[in-house]
Simulated scan of single mutants.
Amino acid sequence: MIKHKDHFHGSDLEKIEQIYGIKKEDIISFSANVNPLGISPNLRDGIAKNIDCITTYPDRDYVQLRKCIAEYCGTETDNIIVGNGSTELISLFIQIEKPKKALILGPTYSEYEREIALEGGKTIYYPLREENDFVLDVNHFISKLSEDIDMLVICNPNNPTGTAINNHDMRKILDACKECDIFVMVDETYVEFAENIKEVSSVSLTRTYGNIAILRGTSKFFAAPGLRLGYAICSNSDLMSVMNQRKDPWTINSIAVIAGTLMFSDTKYIEATRSLIASERNRLYDIFEKSSRFKPYWPHGNFMLLKILEDGITSNDLFDKCIRAGLMIRDCSTFPYLGENYIRFCFMNPKDNDRLVDLLLN
């Protein structure tokens, strides 16, 4: 098992406030990877108008919500299951599959390993190589798959590297996993930020593969981490039936149901988000690519990984420098396979992004 170091999560503003003496209201979090637009006006007004929904139980089967999600994703309603954030569904899939040995592409989110360990499973990592700019060598990866592996976990686009696996390569992985009887769990938390969603998302592959489940949420793209609304897409009817039997009823509250039916059809907000992120992604990548201090890795999500090239400066040094200016970045030394010369930041509004760039480059 990889030993994970302690770190400040993007939501740990209370800890920052306590340690640095900076009010959390004065901190701009470049660490949380949340949409800088905040929640949409339609969502805010819609929740206010429908606040009386909390006086009744939501539909136990969440049919209308699942239908909205299915239309948004381009799949069938029966292939959708909702949960209290994607975290609940990650936990459920792992509880049901009970992998004795799981393979995870790393460096990545530590929650996968924690959940697998809670079920008594062992986790091994396949490291994404810096010399390949953290882009997966699919053929080499497939050669390492074996029948003693029960589950494969992939974050796509990956956090923190920002790299992504396209549909063509994911199909090759699924074919190889099918031969070895490996279940594949793909976390698509950041896929909606990708410029080429259809090329990166594996939703279309669920029509022909029953050995894959896709996890998504509303925390990042829809700027609603407090809503705790997540969902999974899977065409394996037997597995989905077990999921629904095991899942506690009413884990999605009535406000989240209303919010979901509004946000997934809010095309104006969705397009504004994608436009802003695409523009800032291109602009900031160009800035850091020309810098002698950092090496940027092309991101498919709404955040960018930087390698510090200047001697004598660590990721902790830059974290400390930024937080004292009220800007919170991510010190990536806490991720497996990344040392003290990597940082990550998400794309905020242009004005705040410019403040961060000035601080990092000067």
Rank of each mutant, 00 (worst) to 15 (best):
P225I: 08
V191Y: 13
C177I: 05
F141P: 01
A213N: 08
I124R: 02
V186F: 10
N158A: 15
T206Q: 09
D187S: 15
E195D: 14
G210H: 11
R207A: 12
T161H: 02
I173Y: 02
N156V: 09
C177H: 02
Y190Q: 14
K198T: 05
L145D: 06
N139S: 14
R216D: 12
A194G: 13
V135T: 05
E199P: 03
Y209F: 09
Y209I: 09
A213R: 09
F183G: 03
D169N: 12
D148L: 00
H140S: 08
P225H: 02
A223T: 01
H140E: 08
G162F: 14
S204L: 08
G217K: 07
P225T: 02
M185I: 15
D150C: 11
I214C: 01
E147W: 10
V153S: 14
K220P: 07
H168G: 08
L136G: 02
G226M: 07
N196W: 04
S201T: 15
D169E: 05
Y126A: 01
I214R: 01
A224L: 12
N156D: 14
R129I: 01
L215R: 15
F221L: 00
L205S: 05
R216F: 01
V184I: 04
E130V: 00
K178T: 12
R207H: 09
I214D: 05
R129P: 04
V184M: 12
S146G: 07
E199D: 09
G162M: 11
V191I: 06
Y190L: 14
K198P: 07
L174W: 04
E130D: 08
R171I: 05
C155I: 12
A223Y: 02
F134D: 03
N132D: 04
S202V: 10
K220E: 11
T163E: 12
H168K: 13
I124N: 01
I182W: 11
L128A: 01
L145N: 05
G162W: 13
N211E: 02
D181V: 09
K198F: 11
F183R: 00
F134H: 01
K178S: 13
L136M: 07
V153W: 14
L136A: 03
P127K: 00
I149H: 13
L152I: 10
V186M: 12
T218Q: 13
T161Y: 07
S201M: 02
C177K: 00
I142W: 14
Y209G: 02
F134Y: 10
E147Y: 10
C177Y: 06
F193M: 12
F183D: 06
N211T: 08
V200M: 13
